[in-house]
């Protein structure tokens, strides 16, 4: 009996908990960027997904080049060494885009919809550039040790029927995400620049009166956003695989995460990322085997016991979004009402 319960729990960990933690960290990093732009620059940035794709693309190219030179990171993926290059290019690109596109509308104080429409134009261009440089196909760039623990090892270790596989990319994702978020929070809470950013997001006029330099705030916001986007995109690419189009589709879960958490609330974005990821994985997982371990023989289910097929995972983000809009428009962490 206890063995059955243990098997069921291991099964759930292997197929729901571990993947959802990794996916949630990736979403959280992406949603942080969206919520920062929402909070400081005050518009929904549709080009965020393609900024992720751009940073990841440069990371992939740098990875290939490093491997050609014979540089590697031992058991860790080479992409970790290439990440700074990707982040640098993404930062330069988003600053250039801000200078040439967004600034004009900011200075004129155009409405947020205008900025959103403009960000669609930026999305188009970035999407085209990425597809032009690296092509629309799937690119795999993971290397190093693939598993920290394989299912077989786990079975041998515990003697259970079910295995728990932990991929190194999943552990890496969590570590990198925690490190990035810790740095971000230290920056926002402790440094002078972080404080002026929060002040600017909170009340623009008051911050300007207090001598906050708006150009610097915007510059730092884009820098952080681009670095986070590159990290999130690279981790997602290592965990799954890189395809330009999937990054466009990540936009919806990331928006959902940012809104669920409360616009302009970094903590909320993280909570939202995990909420979206866990709901998505839990609702699209087939519980047949899980229930077989727990239920007596005559109650065994015939079907897959899957709430929704994986093709409908976007509807989970959407449903969460709608629920928040209906019940608590400020989000879980009492962000700004839009």
């Amino acid at each position: 009996m206890i063995v059955d319960v243990a098997n069921a729990l291991v099964l759930l960990c292997n197929f729901v908990v571990v993947p959802a933690i990794a996916y949630g960290s990736q979403l959280a990093l992406g949603a942080l960027g969206i919520t920062l732009v929402f909070g400081v620059l005050r518009f929904a940035n549709f080009s965020h997904g393609d900024l992720m794709a751009l940073g990841t693309m440069v990371t992939i190219l740098a990875t290939w080049q490093l491997r050609r030179w014979g540089v590697g990171a031992g058991p860790l993926p080479t992409a970790l060494l290439a990440l700074p290059f990707g982040a640098l290019v993404a930062v330069v690109a988003s600053l250039a885009v801000d200078r040439s596109v967004f600034r004009f509308y900011r200075v004129r104080r155009s409405g947020p919809v205008v900025l959103t429409v403009v960000s669609v134009g930026v999305m188009f261009v970035m999407n085209g550039v990425v597809r032009f440089v690296i092509g629309p196909d799937d690119r795999s760039f993971a290397d190093g040790a693939r598993y920290l623990m394989t299912a077989g090892e786990f079975k041998r270790m515990t003697g259970l029927d079910e295995g728990l596989a932990i991929r190194s990319s999943q552990v890496l994702t969590v570590f990198v995400a925690v490190a990035s978020v810790a740095t971000l929070f230290w920056f926002l809470q402790r440094t002078r620049m972080g404080k002026s950013m929060r002040a600017y997001a909170d009340n623009e006029d008051l911050a300007l009166l207090s001598g906050v330099d708006p150009d610097r705030v915007v510059l730092v916001t884009w820098t952080i956003t681009a670095v986070l986007a590159t990290v999130a995109g690279t981790l997602y690419g290592l965990d799954k695989s890189f395809q330009p189009f999937t990054y466009l589709q990540l936009l919806l879960p990331m928006f959902a995460a940012a809104i669920v958490g409360g616009i302009g609330q970094p903590l909320g974005a993280i909570a939202g990322g995990f909420l979206v990821a866990f709901s998505e994985v839990a609702i699209t997982y087939a519980y047949k085997k899980f229930l077989r371990y727990l239920l007596p023989e005559h109650l065994h289910p015939d079907g897959l016991v899957q709430l929704l097929s994986t093709d409908y995972k976007f509807s989970v983000s959407f449903a969460i979004l709608v629920a928040v809009l209906l019940w608590r428009p400020t989000g879980l962490f009492r962000g700004r009402v839009l």
């Binding site: 518009f43 929904a44 549709f46 409405g111 947020p112 919809v113 959103t116 589709q249 936009l251 919806l252 928006f255 959902a256 809104i259 097929s309 093709d311 409908y312 976007f314 509807s315 983000s317 959407f318 979004l321 709608v322 809009l325 209906l326 428009p329 839009l338």
Partner: peptide, 28 residues
């Protein structure tokens, strides 16, 4: 019914979502 009445960005995001869902339904 759901998305109007809030700031216009919400309509954009909600319609982005519904479009993915409609296409997923038609595909599956």
């Amino acid at each position: 019914r759901v998305a109007l009445g809030l700031r216009s960005d919400y309509l954009a995001i909600a319609t982005l979502g519904i479009s993915e869902i409609v296409i997923a339904v038609l595909k599956n």
